[in-house]
Every structure is written in C-alpha cells, then in structure tokens.
Design a protein around this nucleic acid. Structure first.
Lengths: 144, 144
DNA sequence: CTCAATAGTTATCTTTTGATAATAAAATCA
DNA sequence: TGATTTTATTATCAAAAGATAACTATTGAG
C-alpha cells in the first residue's frame, strides 16, 4: 500500500462523508437562520461559554462579520452575552433556552435521518462501524 | 452499544473529518476562482464529460446560477462545451488542459499536506487506517 | 501616568450567491 | 402538425457573506 493509493482512497472517502452528512443534515437548519448563523450557534452549543474571538478563530470569520451575525442571533433571543467580571473587555456568550431548543430540535431531526440510514444494518456491522470510527478518529483525524 | 452513543460518536467524527479536510485543502483553491467555481471544476474533473443538468443535480445549484458560473469557467479557459450530436439541446462539458492543470496543481498541494500529516504514522497504523476507511465506506458511507 | 495591545462594535462597500422571470432551440408526444 | 417537455441561456433583483476603516472601552507594560 503506497501513499498515493491511500491518498486517493481518502479523497473518495471524504467525498462520501460530505455527501452522506449533507443527506443526514438536510432540512435540519431552521429557516430563520442562515447557514453561517446556524454554524455559529452550533459552535456555541458545543463549546459554551465562548468569546467572540474564539468564534472567529474557529470559523474563519473576521471580528466585524462575526459580531454582526452574533448580534442577529442575540436579536432572535438565541444567545446572550455576559461580561467577564475580571476582564470587562471580554464577553462570554451563552445559549438561551430557545437557542438550546433550536439546536436540540435540529439534532433530533438529524437523529431520525441517522436511524433511518442504519435501520437495516446488522448488529455486527454496527460494531464494525463503531470500531472503525474509533480507529480513524485516534489514528488519523486527531487534533494537534 | 446503543444507537445514541454511535450517533454522538458520528457527530464528533464528522466534525473531525471536516476540520482535518479543511486543514488539508487549505490554500489549494486558486484565487482566481470562488469556492463554488472550484467545486464545479472539481466535479467536472471527476465526472467528465457532464451536462449542465448533472452539475445542477449534484451541487444543488439552479440552472441559471450554474450556467452563470460555468460561463465564467469558460471565460477563464478552464472548461469547454461541445453539443451532443444526437440531442443538440445537450452540451457536454469537458476540462481544457489548463483546467486539468489547475485541478492537478490543487491536488498536488493537498497531497503535500497529506504526506506531512501521515509522515510520523507507522506502517502498521497506516494499514489500520486503510482498513478502517474501507469498512466505513462499504458499511456506512455507501451510495444508495 | 502614558502608550500599546486586546476585545469588541458600528458603518459602509463589494463580491458572491440565490431566486425568479422571460426567452430560445431542440426533442418528443399525441 | 401543433402542443408540450427538456436543456440551457440571459437578465434582474435580493440576500448573504466578505473586507476594511474608524471607533470605544478596557487592560497591561514600562
């Protein structure tokens, strides 16, 4: 197995992941939000509390643009900001309960799509899938 | 292993795939193209010859918008259209040699990033990665 | 205290992307 | 043959996203 074959296999695999992910997440985004707004909300949901700077680092948005989108999320009562007591320049961003609910509902729909996709897969194959994900996550898709 | 655990694992895994893919493809897109134009060019590269309708089906672009972006690719001499002899409504879209070169160069850069990422991974682990990708591709990320 | 750095906001402009209507030409159907 | 469908284009308009400059407020360093 040379690197080139593995490389090409990874390209094909990545395309498949993107295609299936799109199928699973299709229609999960609420219409009141743009894709970027939903991505930001999702990022906050899994990392809260976060600062605006952290959002910018992780989403490649500039501060002004991230600030603008965050303002819209705030206007929709999906997030709220609280000033840091120690450093009053910083704003810690939290989900509101309606923000939490919006993300929960989105994931519920994704879960339905997921259940539908695996409904005909045998227990043994699911175990293999589980094992393979662990392998890839630890051996290749790790942080650094 | 219940479905919920596997579901959550998949979400985390998908995020990791997206993050690493972005790292590997970073700066591969030529500045003369927008992301969508590059995606279309990449799609043509791996499926040529294609028709405009096929591009629309696979990229969720409307015909007018896809036609517009395709015109720009044509103006940059990256693709060319040839009418179908049997059905003269249809246009088969091909890469030009400079289009091919642009895609090749992009993948060369991605390959460099890939080689850099796996340079410290042992032969045994690479075999495991290879095996795990095959498993996931056939058991979960299949077409249908 | 002064000055630079950090965190964030507001305003503005441009580019990109998305949506829709109107059109043309060729093919198919009845 | 005439009506309908398919394939694609052009022209607009609107919305989303990206880029930049100017600004405020706070903190930290010397």
């Amino acid at each position: 197995m040379d690197n080139h074959k593995l490389f090409n296999k990874l390209i094909t695999f990545t395309n498949a992941v993107y295609r299936v992910t799109e199928e699973l997440t299709k229609e999960a985004k609420p219409n009141v939000l743009t894709q970027i707004q939903f991505d930001i909300l999702d990022f906050i949901a899994r990392n809260q509390p976060v600062t605006l700077s952290e959002i910018c680092d992780c989403t490649h948005l500039s501060m002004p643009n991230a600030s603008r989108e965050l303002r819209k999320l705030g206007e929709n009562d999906l997030i709220e900001k609280k000033s840091d007591v120690d450093d009053r320049r910083k704003q810690y961003i939290y989900m509101t309960s309606s923000g939490e609910k919006m993300i929960e509902d989105a994931y519920k729909l994704i879960k339905v799509n997921f259940d539908n996709r695996i409904k005909d897969i045998s227990k043994e194959d699911l175990d293999e899938i589980n094992y393979a994900i662990d392998k890839l996550q630890s051996k290749f898709y790790f942080d650094r």
